[in-house]
Design a binder for these strands. Sequence first.
RNA 1: GCCCGCGUAGCUCAGUGGAUAGAGCGCUGCGCUUCGGACGCAGAAGUCGGGGGUUCGAAUCCCUCCGCGGGUACCA
Length: 554
Amino acid sequence: MREKLQAKIKEVVSEIFDVEVEPVISVPEEQFGDYSTNVALQLADQNHKAPHEIADKIAKSLQEKLSDDAESVDIAEPGFINIRLSVSALWERANETETYKPMTYKDQSIVIETNNPNPFKDLHIGHAYNSVVGDTISNLLGLGQAKVHRVSYHGDVGLHVGKSMWAILRFIDGDPDKLKTIPETKRPTFLSQKYLEGSTAYEEDASAKKEIEDLSQQSFVLDDPIFKTVYEICNSWSFEYFDRIFQSIGSRPVEKRYLERDADNAGRGIVESNIGPVFTKSDGAVIFEGEKYGLHTRVFISSRGLTLYEARDLGLMKLKAEDFNPQASYIVTANEQKEYFEVILKAAELIMPEVAKMTRNISTGMVKLSTGKMSSRTGNAINIGWLIEAIKSALSSRKSSHEGQEQTIVGALRYSMLKNRIGSDLVFDVNDAISLEGNSGPYLQYAYARSRSILAKVTSESQELPGDIDKDERRLLRKLGDYQNVLDKAVSELLPHQLCGYLYELAQLFNQFYEHNRVLGDERENIRVNLVRKYSDILKSGLDVLGIPAPDRI
RNA sequence: GCCCGCGUAGCUCAGUGGAUAGAGCGCUGCGCUUCGGACGCAGAAGUCGGGGGUUCGAAUCCCUCCGCGGGUACCA
């Protein structure tokens, strides 16, 4: 409908004024109509004519051209043209919407790095946020008809591994079988405790520091049998834990896990073979002089000969390009890495321009806590497991059944992370995240369950619709037809909050409708059931994109 | 210091060139539950950080100042 309208306006303008324009069409407040355009104001600017006159001419001609689709075409000061759709056009638009799929990324292979927690360490809200955002953006890409490859990247080598292994090796005291004494459910806690022990020792004990540094080296070579055995067991514990947690917050599994170990080799090769043209040596280190390009100068290979994150990221870019032959590659990270990635991409541009060109860092903003105080044990971070328990206990304080509780938790958590624009910081308020009311995931799930409950009770079979429509019905139908525009925008800009905002407004309208209008047993039952059905389908499909389950009963 | 980002109601945020700046939470009052009250209705609450500029039109673009956050050579 929007395209149709756009074409007609273009046609009209071309006929009357003999100019080519790409008319901007927006959805105004309901009182003004269903669509609005400011072409007259744009033309007035160019032609130095009164916008009102121009608008008048366009509106008259447009009214004729649209015939059955427009109920009215009005002008409003200073020169807006407002179009009010006919009832039949509104239904047509809503029907289109139900089967609509944006084609934004059609036939593209796209690889996206959705999360990157390090084994041996614990997961906190920041990891959950990254996963939820990365997963939802992947869903949007998929909706835009891309072939999406979700991947993750993990720091399985380096200092943090040394810290953990130092404490773990002391615990097993030469006997790897001691790990078997740790029950499966305690493994994540065990690992995070050992990491904490190692970190503390590293700070406070000089001899431990030396040992930890040696163990860090060992993580690269793995030539000590006991180290290797223990390392591999604990690594697998971590990955099992990650998979379980990410699945429990509704994120789909990754297709491939990349390890720094692999990126290390690839990255070293790239950097070393480009010393001279791209990289230079300085104080024994291999650096990239980003300052030449207005960026930061960064070290890629340290003076001790070790690759740093910079070199490994170059290697990773190459590996991903080889594995998936993508047209686009996204890396979702917190924005503290934004300027870092600008440097990496600049260096990559000089070495492998085609890879650099398609790679984009989506920076998410940092997760901050609204309350200063947090668990003293985990420092200033909120552990994901703790958060899930908090939502669970908020739920059980309700009298309702526990049916669908898991889904409600996912809904509350994901929605609280997705409803704000990606890029600005997320001030994480636990009370907000566990909220079941207002602009929240559970509000949407509840509004969905209500509609399903009505539909389950429908007995009449007649599908014949009356030609007229009342005010509340029209309002709901108007909103339903908006869905495809919202999808277009959310998909092309990769902004899930656009969809959140729309679904919330839609659910609000439905709840208002529900409050003031009887559906079943009313003389207008047919038309209303039809609306409820469309509403229910659209809400479910939107929640699905957000990775939020929509159970029939909650 | 330099670079990047942000500043909208008490709090958390939408709105990023168009019409009287919107929502949730919180606050005040109401509906007391007939298709599910995890709901609905009404109300109070704003120098859109300050100042200047561009424009028919600015929260939105430009300049400047203030405040906050992040980055800034061997962490990731």
